[in-house]
């Protein structure tokens, strides 16, 4: 569907609350790269330092919310397609289940990571298995759900008779 059509169908009342502010725009432009980097650091380095994918994923999600606050919710929604958000949320759950089922396929219990090391011969298999569900699972789910919650709440209740 063409973008213009999409925005017309979703011409909901919230976008008139947007006020362009130089202060907020500049602040978000400065802070967003650092926030995203910090979120990625927490996710990727959570195994050895405080933090982890839940916090990291939340901060990655909040980076998108900051952009939406600075540049307006509707332009950010146009830029961020629904398939990206759905992909993050569903993909995260799929990766988490996938890692769990992989260890079962290797003859062990759900998430019995040490089999990656003993059977597949991956060095530090337990650690990498944990990283896979942390970074590939939880971080994606949390970031996706927060972004999704934000845009769904901003769009509000969808009444019967409107186009979805």
């Amino acid at each position: 569907m063409a973008r213009a059509d999409r925005s017309m169908e979703r011409g909901e009342a919230f976008d008139d609350t947007y006020v362009e502010s130089q202060v907020i725009l500049t602040a978000v432009r400065l802070v967003a790269p650092f926030a995203l980097t910090y979120g990625l650091f927490l996710s990727l380095h959570g195994a050895d330092t405080p933090g982890g994918s839940f916090q990291g994923g939340a901060i990655i999600g909040v980076t998108i919310l900051m952009l939406a606050f600075a540049f307006g919710i509707e332009p950010t929604r146009e830029w961020l397609r629904n398939s990206v958000v759905t992909g993050l949320v569903a993909g995260g759950v799929a990766i988490f289940i996938g890692v769990g089922l992989a260890t079962m396929a290797l003859g062990g219990a759900f998430l019995e990571y040490r089999l990656f090391e003993t059977i597949l011969g991956i060095p530090d298999g337990t650690k990498w298995g944990m990283e896979a569900i942390e970074v590939g699972g939880i971080a994606l789910i949390v970031a996706g759900v927060f972004i999704g919650l934000f845009f769904a709440t901003a769009a509000g209740l969808h009444r019967e008779g409107e186009e979805a």
Partner: peptide, 17 residues
């Protein structure tokens, strides 16, 4: 994950963004 799905259900929507 279910919380995200429940929000969509409550708001009667099929898409997040």
């Amino acid at each position: 994950f279910a919380a995200g799905m429940a929000t969509l259900l409550v708001l009667n929507r099929e898409v997040f963004a």
